[in-house]
Amino acid sequence: MAEEKQKKIRVLIAKPGLDGHDRGAKIIARALRDAGMEVIYTGLHQTPEQVVATALQEDVDAIGLSILSGAHNYLFPRVLELMKEKGLEDVMLFGGGIIPDEDIVKLKAMGVKEIFTPGTSTEEVIQFLRENIKK
């Protein structure tokens, strides 16, 4: 059992900034939990500092940021920067929200592993995490 538990993927789903659109974040959080992952959800209105501190404290494998407010070009790089500062280079950063294609290209080049846009199925996100986090 103990070994089994260690193998579980731990994910932090976070809502940074002032954006209150949490329908998607909560659906993803629940779907990942239903898929057997350990999910921590930050709740709304987190600063990038709070998000990274929670990730560190909870020892997660991945951080998923949900941003539908248009602030992604500030928030993703800021979280990446703080992750580096705190030595979380081995933690994967991914995200979802209303994010234009050209911004996705730039954010991925900076180190965001994947960005999911509206219409993505929860199954796709589950598969993605399973494939990219080896435990």
Binding site: G17, D19, S69, G70, A71, H72, Y74, L75
Partner: peptide
């Protein structure tokens, strides 16, 4: 405000 970074005039 620090929480407003990146959100000003966006939505």
């Amino acid at each position: 405000h620090p929480l407003s970074r990146g959100e000003v005039g966006r939505e």
